[in-house]
Design a protein around this nucleic acid. Structure first.
Lengths: 265, 265
DNA sequence: ACCGGAGCTTTCATTGGATGAAAGCTCCGG
DNA sequence: CCGGAGCTTTCATCCAATGAAAGCTCCGGT
């Protein structure tokens, strides 16, 4: 009856949630059990409890999906909806001026997560999805987030193989390191045909008191792009957001550190 | 050592997540334990595990917040982001035409949850929040969702005391029942100063093969509103969305029920 | 109608992860 | 230096969780 020791109940529940992905948002019980590496009866019981609470929902087809209740709780994430609510007006301004795609992303571990996107009807199609992940080394937002990430994060990304998306993608750690230094120097990042051969993006950092917490970018067709002209726009948006964050984002309750800025190496 | 019997580990984890709310998105360990009704050491251990996974994050102030990882998983909810992605273009069209607030909501149990909102800069201020809940009996979207809800849901709502928000709020079950019949008859709902004395909303149902799954509305200043003129607009948006849902929303994989429509009493 | 298989649900004896009292630790203000 | 608040760790105990096995339900093939 060995219950594979070292596995907590909580970790099993989380593994069940983790089984879902953008590519497979609906799973049968058997699929769930297999992906979470749980015996069927165990999966059955945990899943039943999650459904009862509303974390999962069961469709007419018998398959399970992420439930609205979990979406509600997730919407309380400061780095998710919280950030989005703050940024949306500025993103809309940027869209009004340029009518190009506007993206907002944060770093999570060694990848980036897209928090919001305004996709112009006539702009270049972008293949990103809100809530989706992407590598840090190619996109504009990714370069910004990586450039201002803790040294240890940068080292880990540079040490791993860097995936190539186009013939122009920078996959050489040495060259990438130079690009990151450049990003820090000028305060914005340009990603020219690094992900697809038709798109170019310009990104700027968004700073909170504790360092760079997000990045905002414009994605435009590479042949009608003028990065130097776009950069000030994106940077301005980033600065407005940084100011907004400084005040309302993560209100240190009671004790406000007046001059601690021990981050962003 | 009595471990209050009948309480599963999973339920404790969910209770911890449930402790967060729009009004208190950041909690100390003690607050978390108290709200989840757990002994401190128990809360400590479960919370530590949730942080390790990324479901919670601990701020510089020592308090816990909902983590980005949970937001990511939540974004996979078909009735959350899934619905939003589908509806956003149509909502934007509605906004372009009217420059008024556009809202999208679904029913969860006996309340409604706002999925998305486009708030016009110059439109009436609305006090709703994406991810927030509200009663079903007052707003436009609420009336639509209630009108097309299963009879048993309607009975439960009508049986409970109906909160009054303004002097005009309909709180009499008999009158409300008549209004719901009217909504079903004409196919849209008008909520005139039911929540605040300055706003009026017009809402229409969004149907999937299995019945009404969401509602869309315009919220306008009550004194410059012409419900009869707005209704066709909102209804058209609802119908476009219903059509979109019929095809791409909940793709029954493999076996598509060709003519089952056994819902929506 | 019958059979076989896939997928889900329930039962039941067993046990290891979970538990909470208590003690230890850390920080801060007086 | 002391006291208190809040968090973390230890440790002996035990019940929620477990998985093998059997039961159930729905199909599709024959």
């Amino acid at each position: 009856m060995r219950a594979q020791p070292g596995r907590s109940v909580t970790s099993k529940v989380l593994a069940l949630l983790d089984a879902f992905s953008p590519a497979s948002p609906a799973l049968s019980l058997s699929e769930l059990a297999r992906r979470a590496e749980l015996p069927l009866p165990t999966a059955y019981r945990r899943v039943a409890e999650l459904v009862r609470w509303g974390a999962l929902e069961r469709g007419d087809d018998g398959r399970y999906r992420i439930g609205l209740r979990l979406w509600e709780v997730g919407s309380l994430a400061p780095r998710g909806l919280g950030l989005r609510e703050l940024a949306l007006p500025i993103m809309e301004d940027l869209y009004e001026v340029t009518h190009e795609n506007v993206q907002l992303a944060v770093r999570q571990d060694l990848e980036l997560v897209f928090i919001e996107r305004i996709a112009g009807r006539h702009a270049v199609p972008v293949l990103t999805r809100v809530g989706g992940r992407f590598a840090l080394h190619a996109t504009g937002v990714g370069l910004v987030l990586l450039a201002y990430a803790p040294a240890e994060v940068q080292e880990q990304v540079l040490a791993a193989p860097l995936e190539r998306y186009t013939e122009l993608t920078v996959t050489d750690p040495v060259r990438l390191r130079r690009r990151l230094a450049e990003v820090r120097r000028v305060g914005y990042a340009v990603s020219d045909r690094q992900v697809t051969m038709d798109a170019l993006s310009v990104a700027a950092p968004i700073r909170a008191p504790e360092g760079v917490v997000a990045a905002i970018s414009l994605v435009v067709a590479h042949d009608r792009a003028d990065p130097v002209a776009l950069a000030p726009l994106v940077q301005a948006a980033g600065r407005v957001l940084s100011r907004a964050l400084g005040t309302s984002y993560r209100q240190a309750p009671g004790r406000v550190p007046l001059r601690s800025r021990h981050e962003t190496q």
